[in-house]
Simulated assay, not measured.
Amino acid sequence: MIRILDLCLRLTIWFLLTADVSPGNIVIGVGVSLLIPWGFTPISPVLKDWLRTFGEILVAIPQAYIEAIEIMLRPHTEEEIVMERVKPQRTPGLIFLDIFLITFTPKTIVVKYHDDGWYEVHRIRRRRAP
C-alpha cells in the first residue's frame, strides 16, 4: 500500500513538472517513477502518517488563502528563521509532503532540511505593537 502511495506521489510530481497527461507522457512518468530508487520503510505506522498528512494538506488550502488575504490587507514586516523538528519515523515521501505543507502557506517557507531531523523555516509576521 505504501509503495502505491509513493508511486502516486512520484507520478503527481511528474505530471506537475511536465503539465502533460498524454498517453506517452504517462508511460514515461511511470517508467521514471519506477526507476527512482526506493527506500526501506516500515509498513504499519506509515499509512496512518500518510492519511494524517493528506488531511493536513486539505486544511492548509483554505489556510493559504486566508494568509494571502491577510498579507495583502495588513503588511507583515517582521521575519524570522526558526528550527522545526521533523516528526519521528518519517519516510522520505512524508518529509517531502511536510516540506510542501510548510511551504504551501504564504507566511512560511522551508529554507533548508537538515539530515539530523530539523527544518529551517523562514516566517513572516506582523510587527508587534511597542
Rank of each mutant, 00 (worst) to 15 (best):
Ile124Pro: 04
Asp49Phe: 13
Thr18Asn: 15
Leu51Arg: 08
Arg52Glu: 14
Val121Tyr: 03
Thr103Lys: 08
Phe54Met: 04
Lys48Met: 12
His114Tyr: 11
Met72Gln: 08
Leu17Lys: 11
Pro62Trp: 04
His114Cys: 01
Glu120Lys: 02
Ile28Phe: 05
Ser44Pro: 09
Ser33Met: 03
Ile57Asn: 07
Ile71Ser: 09
Glu120Asn: 08
Tyr119Ile: 02
Ile81Leu: 02
Gly39Met: 07
Cys8Ser: 10
Arg123Val: 01
Phe104Val: 00
Asp116Gly: 02
Leu16Asp: 06
Trp38Gln: 08
Leu16Cys: 10
Leu17Asn: 11
Ala68Gln: 02
Leu51Met: 10
Ile81Trp: 07
Thr41Met: 06
Thr91Glu: 03
Glu84Thr: 05
Phe100Thr: 07
Ala129Glu: 15
Pro62Cys: 06
Asp20Pro: 01
Ile28Trp: 07
Arg128Pro: 02
Pro45Thr: 05
Gly117Cys: 01
Thr108Gly: 00
Glu67Thr: 03
Leu51Asn: 13
Phe40Ala: 12
Arg74Val: 08
His76Glu: 15
Tyr113His: 10
Leu17Arg: 14
Ile36Val: 10
Leu17Cys: 08
Arg127Tyr: 14
Gln63Asp: 11
Val32Cys: 06
Val21Trp: 15
Gly39Phe: 08
Thr41Leu: 09
Ile28Val: 09
Trp38Tyr: 01
Met83Pro: 11
His114Lys: 07
Gly29Ser: 04
Thr41Arg: 13
Arg126Cys: 08
Arg90Pro: 00
Leu17Gly: 10
Gly117Arg: 07
Lys87Ser: 12
Gly31Lys: 07
Pro37Leu: 10
Phe15Ile: 00
Val46Pro: 02
Cys8Lys: 05
Ile124Val: 07
Arg74His: 15
Ala60Gln: 02
Ile95Gly: 01
Thr103Gln: 04
Trp14Asn: 00
Thr77His: 15
Thr12Gly: 14
Gly39Glu: 15
Pro37Met: 01
Asp115Trp: 05
Gly24Val: 05
Arg3Val: 02
Leu11Ile: 04
Leu47Tyr: 12
Ile13Ala: 15
Gly29Ile: 02
Val27Lys: 11
Met83Ser: 14
